[in-house]
Amino acid sequence: MEKTLAEFQQSIIDGDSERTEALAREIAGDGAVAAEDVFASLSAAMEEVGSRYETGEYFIPEMLRSADAVERAMAILEPYLFEQRHDQSGVVVIGTVKGDIHNIGKNIIVAALRAAGYEVHDLGVNVSTAKFIDKVRETGADLLLLSAFTTSTKPALMDILETLEAEGLREGVKVVSGGASHSQELASEVGVDGFAADVKGTLAVCRELLGG
């Protein structure tokens, strides 16, 4: 299965959706691969795609092609990964903040959190402050995860934090921001409880904040 997982990773990098789907079916059918290895593989693939973009080998359409492959793989793998979830209570509201339409990283995290046993409410991309606040209130969320890929979304992050405070919701919910461009510096400035730059880091910070 190690070989299949490596091929799965490569097929995402190549943006070969059909091959990715076939390999995802193989992984789900075999049933021997641990969920965390699947997520590590997905993350590694997207990291390589990102680095090819940085070096000018890939452009936006090639990134989107790989993101499409990930989405198709997730549609097949989610039920399988879900079976492996551990009992771990926690309600999560997640979305990409207003002004940002990146959803690849967020979608992987949503799947990883569900697989880890969280009840996840995904609000999608370009989400307004009001939508986040309403959902936190409605679900009594323990965690609010704010995905923000670009640094220009800092005002949106701050607006959400300020509104949570003003609405008297801030004490009841831990807020985590995440995205490739995140740093401790940005997180401190904005005033979130934690931040993460990748899937593994997000799972770790969620566990830590909920004392699990």
């Binding site: 943006g15 959706s17 936006i60 359409p61 989107l64 092609r65 993101a67 499409d68 339409i101």
Partner: peptide, 11 residues
Amino acid sequence: GLAGFMTDFYR
């Protein structure tokens, strides 16, 4: 929409 448009370059 930019994402759908550019995904279709290959699809």
